[in-house]
């Protein structure tokens, strides 16, 4: 960070200024003039929190995608299908057993198993053939999407969170001050906050595992030079299968999360595939911190866009992508 500040003093200044303005907007009680100009603070804060929690969901989906791509150069355009599959599995588990928490491990294991099948049967046969992988996984996603439509129908499914997580939670953000001087605090759905915290934990754990453990060291070595690593006796294919299973499992978990705060329906697979594409393009391929940054940016852009300029919300997301590509084609945190 210090090196970045030394190399780009102007950018650092701009980023610091933007962060300060954002912090002031979040914590300060807004003066009347500002409320007249851009609407009430409650709307702003809600959009902000929705954006951040949506970013958490995008991060869960995109981090699996970026992990698989970054480590194995495997292009898995069936990632959205894995997400949707996780959502359906989560719905059935939560609905039939009544335990919401049980949906997560089951979705992780089942979707992870699908990931293993994909890696063993598809990707291992076409290592290094980008285009063929893309085409085959597009084919797989078409087939899987139709099979899921066949199996689960076109209905919307919603996974209900348990009692202790439903309902709003008081936060310490002041949205307004009443005429008698009493501050009004913002309320926010508990489940979203918990899920966001969980995705932060997952992200940090992933970063630590990659950078501080032996397995992580092997994975990073495999990215740099696969042949040399296997020559030292490491069982590289096993590592790859493991990473693929983990990335796919994350997509499955994300499906359960998505089913809890939004709905699960046909077509969501493509939406989340696109979201993860945009997130990793913005953040930088193969970088976990990049996926986190990209997911936050895109989540915030989508929510603020839909509140403040509803017609052009998509265009805002797209503009971010275009700007990043134009000035930094490798992504914000990408190498090279």
């Amino acid at each position: 960070m210090r090196a970045f500040a030394r190399r780009h003093p102007v950018w650092t200044g701009i980023i610091a200024l933007a962060a300060a303005v954002a912090l002031w907007l979040i914590f300060a009680v807004w003066p009347d003039g500002l409320e007249d100009a851009i609407g009430r603070k409650k709307v702003f804060l809600n959009a902000f929190f929705n954006g951040i929690t949506l970013g958490g969901l995008y991060f869960l989906v995109a981090s699996g995608f970026t992990l698989i791509f970054g480590l194995m150069r495997n292009v898995n355009l069936a990632h959205g299908s894995l997400y949707l599959l996780g959502g359906y599995i989560g719905y059935y588990v939560a609905d039939s057993t009544g335990y919401w928490l049980l949906a997560f491990p089951v979705a992780f294991v089942v979707v992870g198993f699908f990931g293993i099948l994909l890696q063993m049967l598809v990707f291992r046969r076409m290592e290094g053939e980008d285009l063929r992988q893309t085409l085959v996984t597009i084919g797989i996603s078409i087939v899987v999407a139709d099979l899921m439509l066949w199996g689960f129908g076109g209905d919307f499914y919603n996974i209900n969170p348990p009692e202790w997580l439903s309902g709003p939670m008081d936060t310490f953000f002041v949205t307004a001050v009443k005429s008698n001087g009493e501050a009004v605090y913002m309320k926010y759905p508990m489940v979203r906050i918990v899920i966001f915290a969980a995705s932060v934990v997952v992200g940090v754990a992933m970063w630590l595992a990659l950078n501080r453990t032996r397995i992580g060291m092997m994975i990073r070595a495999g990215v740099d030079d696969r042949d040399m690593l296997s020559a030292t006796g490491a069982r590289i294919q096993l590592v790859f299968v493991g990473v693929f299973a983990f990335g796919a499992g994350l997509a499955g978990i994300a499906g359960v999360v998505g089913g809890t705060f939004q709905t699960i329906a046909p077509g969501e697979d493509i939406r989340f595939l696109l979201a993860s594409l945009v997130v990793v393009i913005v953040g930088g391929m193969g970088s976990i911190p990049g996926a986190a940054l990209g997911a936050l940016l895109i989540g915030l852009a989508e929510q603020f866009g839909s509140v403040y300029f509803p017609t052009y919300a998509v265009v805002l997301t797209f503009l971010i992508m275009v700007t990043v590509l134009a000035f930094r084609p490798q992504g914000l945190m990408g190498q090279g």
């Binding site: 085409l135 085959v136 597009i138 084919g139 078409i142 087939v143 999407a145 139709d146």
Partner: peptide, 13 residues
């Protein structure tokens, strides 16, 4: 779509 997808998959595979 299943038919199209399977056909496509077989050919590209």
């Amino acid at each position: 779509n299943l038919l199209i997808g399977l056909g496509f998959l077989v050919i590209v595979f």
